[in-house]
C-alpha cells in the first residue's frame, strides 16, 4: 500500500476513538495525522490546509458529533470545489448504518462500522487508495 507521506485528518468528539483510528493508520505507516474534535474544527483545519504544502489527502470522520456532524462536514467538503476531491471516510455505529445512503448520495468514499478490526480497516483503506489512483 502506498501513500506513506499522506496527511490525514481524523475527526471524532471522543479522543479514545481518534486514538483508535490513529493507531490503525500508524500500522499502515501513515503518521502525518491531524485531529479535530468536531466538524467545525475540522472544517477550519481543512480550510487552513488548502494551498499549504501539505493539504489533507484523506478525511476520516465520525458521524455523530456535536456542533457540525460528520454528515454535515461531508456535505461541506463535497460542495466546495477546493475540497470536493478529498477522499472522505465516515465512521458509523451499527445503528446508523441505515443512514449510509444519505452519505452515499453526498459522495462519501466509503464507510467503516464500529467496532472494526485492523483487517477491516486495511480493506477500507485499500478501497480508498484504489479510488485515489483512479482519480
Amino acid at each position: 500500500m502506498a501513500t506513506k507521506n499522506m496527511r490525514v485528518l481524523v475527526v471524532d468528539d471522543m479522543k479514545s476513538m481518534r486514538m483508535a483510528v490513529k493507531k490503525k493508520l500508524k500500522v499502515l505507516d501513515i503518521t502525518d495525522i491531524t485531529e479535530a474534535d468536531d466538524g467545525s474544527t475540522a472544517w477550519s483545519a481543512i480550510e487552513d490546509s488548502i494551498g499549504s504544502s501539505q493539504p489533507f489527502a484523506m478525511i476520516l470522520s465520525d458521524w455523530n458529533m456535536p456542533n457540525t456532524s460528520g454528515i454535515e462536514l461531508l456535505a461541506k467538503v463535497r460542495s466546495d470545489p477546493r475540497t470536493k476531491q478529498i477522499p472522505f471516510v465516515l465512521v458509523t455505529a451499527e445503528s446508523e448504518k441505515d443512514q449510509v445512503m444519505q452519505a452515499v448520495k453526498l459522495g462519501v468514499t466509503t464507510y467503516l462500522t464500529k467496532p472494526f478490526t485492523q483487517e477491516t480497516f486495511n480493506e477500507k483503506m485499500d478501497q480508498v487508495f484504489r479510488k485515489m489512483k483512479v482519480a
Binding site: S16, M19, K22, K23, K26
Partner: peptide, 24 residues
C-alpha cells in the same frame, strides 16, 4: 488496547472511552 499506547493513569480523555465502548 483500544488506543495503541500504554496508559498508567486514568484521565478525562481516557474515561470517554468507556462511554464509547457502551455506545458501540
Amino acid at each position: 488496547g483500544m488506543m495503541g499506547e500504554e496508559y498508567e493513569s486514568i484521565d478525562d480523555d481516557l474515561v470517554d472511552g468507556c462511554a464509547e465502548l457502551l455506545n458501540i
